[in-house]
Design a protein around this nucleic acid. Structure first.
Lengths: 350, 350
DNA sequence: ATTTTTTCCGTTACCGTGCACGGAATTCCA
DNA sequence: TGGAATTCCGTGCACGGTAACGGAAAAAAT
């Protein structure tokens, strides 16, 4: 009944006839222990089910740890700002266990800045890392270095096909496209959908929207094969250009009403949508940016598929912290997280 | 830059010219300190922004705390089983900070068992409590006693209109009915809906489905006023009776297709639904019971509104634990949580 | 003025681990 | 077989806070 009679390092010292110093040495296997005593201690640890007292440990070693977070810089209103807010929450919860969170940021369109940021990060000597792999090759170089230095790291948002990482927290991208299509069609056949995409001219970047688009199109293929799909491309930095593009398209294709965007930037077309309201039009996008949620509340956007990026980074930081403090591996390595469906009726409590 | 140079109890002892014993006495104001020294210490604490080291504290006082959870007993497959699973998760996370979780259960249809359970709970002498108020009057008696003994308590699921509680975590019930209606109609007008309800003959119990039903009906009133509503009542303990009732109803009203239930028991009518498939029928229910989610995966149920009861109890336990260990109040007292929309396309990651 | 009580405060022994230091036991080499 | 070099292990202090204990100083009683 009483779990209060916890067994301590002294208990296993007595049981083995050794001293706590020796027991401590095998616990942190830092050598200077004979094979015989090592095994004896291990056996007793096993028998008694010894678990170290984290407080005492933390208190004794005193020094604080540091977890670095390497993510794209968070311009206001961007997806990465949501991640950043999750970081501040996580900071509070782990600072009491002696861990500091230090963010390192880079321009997600500039690989040189990524390399610079990861260099600085390594120099700071973190005890663990959480990162979002934007540049495939650059990340590979980094993770190899991390593995050499035995620094644990966790992925968020997307991951590489290596396996040295401690954990991954993210969305099932393909499925999210599938879900998105179901929300847009409502299970009923639709005749046409417009996909608004961002023109990108950068190379070697991983593009998560590809998988989403694939899932979206597969759903349509299976559930309403006669649906016609159109693409247009916009430039996020050119608001008036966006309106022109949309105007031109809707003149040429007046029948197309439903609209989807596979990145977090549905808010970019909201001004145009509100200038040209169409009853019964479905507009579906991704991620809970403030601007997106406001448009949802006004009814301009019908539905958002969201992934709680703050939660993801939180879990990732906790996993790394747990590993640093207790050397415990997370229960699952790949954690595909729930996809939240947001409508105007449940967005206010998000 | 360095937060590592934390100020300790010794620092403020030196600054005041007193000993750490005295400082400790004012920190826990357990008397035996002159007014003059008390104020001197308080002033220095303020100046230096002293914050006690939780580990050292926990380590020193050694003794463990106990949080009691008072909820209806969790028959397999019931809503409260989900809560119970959240309890086991919470247990792991707080046992490392020296807190034990002890559940006390009662029959949610028997007020005497509630009183008995709360009596036993009080006798066990918990340091904090999480409870779901099923019986209004009985809970009021209990909470008054808790306030007298200065034992902090948090509500989950629903709350009373007292204000002595530390925090509340639950769903906005009325809104959830509203959201439910929106999911059922898909924003399009529907001509009729059947509400399947549970026959209850008990009194003085709080019934959360009342508010849900109200929200549901208000949505219909505003968005498709011509929709016709029917009610039928079933007995959860009589499976064949359920089928008969549904058979009889569908014979008399063949036009009514869409079905909603406002409690967690939509799974009760799933066998009947699967015997009588109707294309285009919408079936909406609440809560992520295993049986409900399976029916969702098969497409029998169109949508579930879920509330993560495990998360709720987790947050409640954390809030109470935080108060016990650090005397910190939670950031918000009333926490209305997000309503999750579950469909067959996002249920597998829930 | 002396004794008794009360008020106030410093000292000290923990809590369970981490780790440096030094010494004993063993092995090695001559 | 002696001494030197290793290997192995025990001791003791530190971490920051808690609380019992006992004693000095102040107040009250005689």
């Amino acid at each position: 009944m009483a779990p209060s009679d916890k067994i301590t390092i002294m208990d296993i010292a007595r049981r083995t006839g050794l001293s706590k110093g020796t027991v401590d040495r095998v616990l942190h296997n830092r050598g200077e222990v004979s094979r015989k005593s090592y095994e004896k201690v291990m056996k007793v640890i096993e028998e008694l089910g010894y678990e170290p007292n984290v407080y005492a440990s933390l208190l004794a070693k005193g020094g604080r740890h540091m977890i670095a977070v390497l993510i794209p810089s968070h311009e206001p209103g961007s997806f990465w700002e949501l991640v950043a807010s999750g970081i501040s929450r996580a900071r509070e919860s782990v600072e009491t266990i002696g861990i500091d969170i230090v963010p390192f940021e880079y321009d997600q369109y500039d690989i040189a800045s990524f390399e610079e940021a990861s260099r600085q990060m390594l120099e700071a000597g973190p005890d663990g890392i959480v990162l979002a792999p934007m540049f495939r090759d650059g990340t590979l170089v980094l993770t190899r270095e991390l593995e050499k230095r035995e620094i644990p790291y966790a992925f968020i948002d997307s991951k590489l096909d290596t396996d040295g990482y401690l954990a991954y927290f993210g969305l099932p991208l393909y499925k999210s496209g599938y879900l998105c299509a179901d929300q847009l069609t409502g299970g009923q056949p639709v005749d046409s959908v417009l996909m608004v995409r961002i023109r990108r001219d950068r190379l070697q970047q991983s593009d998560p929207t590809i998988n989403r688009r694939a899932g979206f199109m597969d759903y349509l293929l299976e559930n309403c094969p006669e649906c016609r799909l159109s693409n247009i491309f916009i430039d996020p930095n050119d608001p008036s250009g966006i309106e022109e593009t949309l105007d031109a398209f809707s003149r040429e294709h007046p029948g197309i009403r439903h609209i989807v965007m596979f990145n977090s930037r549905i808010h970019l077309i909201v001004p145009w949508l509100e200038k040209h309201p169409v009853p019964g039009r479905k507009v579906v996008g991704f991620d809970n940016l403030t601007a997106n949620m406001e448009a949802l509340g006004r009814g301009t956007v019908s539905c958002l598929i969201a992934q709680r990026p703050d939660e993801q980074v939180n879990l990732a930081i906790d996993a790394v912290a747990e590993y640093i403090v207790r050397k415990k591996l997370p229960p699952k390595k790949d954690n595909f997280m729930h996809m939240d469906i947001l409508t105007r009726y449940n967005v206010e409590y998000y």
